[in-house]
Amino acid sequence: MSEMPEIVTITTVVNETPTVKTFVFDKLFAFRPGQFCMVWIPGVDEIPMAFSAANSITVMKVGDATEALFSLKAGDKLGIRGPFGNGFSPSGKVLAIGGGIGVTPLFTLAASGEVDTFILGARTREELVFADDLAKVSDLKIATDDGTFGFHGFVTGILDQIDVVSYDTICVCGPEMMMKGILDRLVAKGIESRGQFSMHRYMKCAVGVCGSCCMDEHGLRVCKDGPVFTGDLIKTGEFAHYHRGPSGRKE
């Protein structure tokens, strides 16, 4: 079946933080929280991005493609392929831990009423994303690296203060070293299979064919077998050690 990009028109651009914008468009996509789409910025590139709602993506400016995306405004067009991947599949009592722009897929999980406790981390107060909305739908705890809001330190500092074993599912998305700190704690308590980690890798096809996003040591495809993996699947191998760039070289 043809899966040509769906062309959408941007209706609104919301400035979330100095480095994060939400692009709302005119079409709805039926996605499961944690699934992603490929965003085609015509004439520039196509990049994987989490949905922040059925009709929006929330983007941090990190490179050439996102910089080009940031220059777009209401009325401009994008191509969307997806949704792709497996998404989160929580059960029981759910803890979500999001860092930086990694909050996005977890925000959609919380917005659908599937999160009990949410630990949100950011570098500094003005980089906190979705904090107000998250406080309405979950028991929200905030950490900032510089202490400008909430707990002074990393999300793992808050994790150490709560009874993590009382949660049936721990959904995580954020910088890989942050996720590593969380996985280490789950492994120490023998509950790493309760952890659902949303991975980010360089992607080209997004449909499980090209192999650009395959992870060591099992050769799993982040785009198709993931992007959400339980902790037991990633605790050995490349996680938190290296990844591969566009050429396939380890970085």
Partner: peptide, 23 residues
């Protein structure tokens, strides 16, 4: 390799222009 989109599923197959990315 080439900029994306680099692969598109179409009726009856896939069209790709990966551009020989390799390490």
């Amino acid at each position: 390799g080439h900029h994306g989109p680099a692969l598109i599923p179409v009726d009856g197959g896939l069209i790709n222009a990966m551009g020989l990315p390799n390490p």
